[in-house]
Design a protein around this nucleic acid. Sequence first.
DNA 1: AGTATTAAATTAGTTCCTAAGATACTTACG
DNA 2: CGTAAGTATCTTAGGAACTAATTTAATACT
Lengths: 163, 163
Amino acid sequence: MGHTEHPVSRPRRQELTRSIYREARTVATRQALADQAVAARLGIGGTDLLCLGVLDHAGPLTAGRLAELTGLTTGAVTGIVDRLEQAGFARRAKDPTDRRKVIIHPEKTQRERTGALYSPVLDALDAWCRAHSEEELDTVLSYLRSFGEALPRLTAQLRKRPD
Amino acid sequence: MGHTEHPVSRPRRQELTRSIYREARTVATRQALADQAVAARLGIGGTDLLCLGVLDHAGPLTAGRLAELTGLTTGAVTGIVDRLEQAGFARRAKDPTDRRKVIIHPEKTQRERTGALYSPVLDALDAWCRAHSEEELDTVLSYLRSFGEALPRLTAQLRKRPD
DNA sequence: AGTATTAAATTAGTTCCTAAGATACTTACG
DNA sequence: CGTAAGTATCTTAGGAACTAATTTAATACT
């Protein structure tokens, strides 16, 4: 990334780093609670919504791959896709080249599914972005990417070793 | 907050804002998957870990208040606290002034419970913070706080209206 | 004191997940 | 080819965890 080190005022930096860590944990907890509420409002389960998030990010996937990515069994994924299809949020398609496979396509955009449900946070986010410079937005984006890349490494490591 | 507006280069700002939103959603999805894996490693359920997060943030709570904050029933909380006690992560204490109430205390610090489990993300976070200026850390903290404050409003709104 | 209220636990029933096996399809080998 | 082995999803049985409603216990009201 070509960033320089910033060693000045050690204790202040350390305190800021700790504050960021604490705040990130708070956000994670509140995000989980909000997601539960959103899922309930959409008439699906929290795990179902999580799978939709994975599908939105990764694009259409086979059932088996979705099971891998989520850490669920294929049996669980069958039920989840049943419910998502029922609710009109996804659909099954057969892979023409390998008819054992079932490709799960997300239906509609995230916006179409949730409507204005998220508007309180979207408005807050928008307001924050309008009140800050492009450089500052870049900084936040850099932080989010760095954090977002570390998470799958953590998840993979935790799932690996049975010890 | 006393921030000035930054209207220059509209399309670039808009794109940055959208990128931040997308990245935040990615982080949320990955965070949820990571939390599941952490909970599994600790031998508890995802909801149990979520309740621990609420307890860490809000301090000791009555069972009823924990049910309110999480959106769960009191019956569910009874089971969760049973499991958390079993695993040594929390303990029940009777309120001396009102003996109907059960105060749930988190046991140990988060660090003591999870050990080095989170180190991959902590290391990434630490590296990012070392590579950026104090002003940039302040910016991220400001973002996280703004986002973190909006989430409970969203949750409350979604839980309210039964329509 | 006696009724109403509040807090948590209990119970019965439902939903969702896992583990194991069945089914359907594909690939590899003799 | 044709059969065996492998792969992908679905099905089934059982268990864990949640909800709604009730019960038990403590407190507040008048």
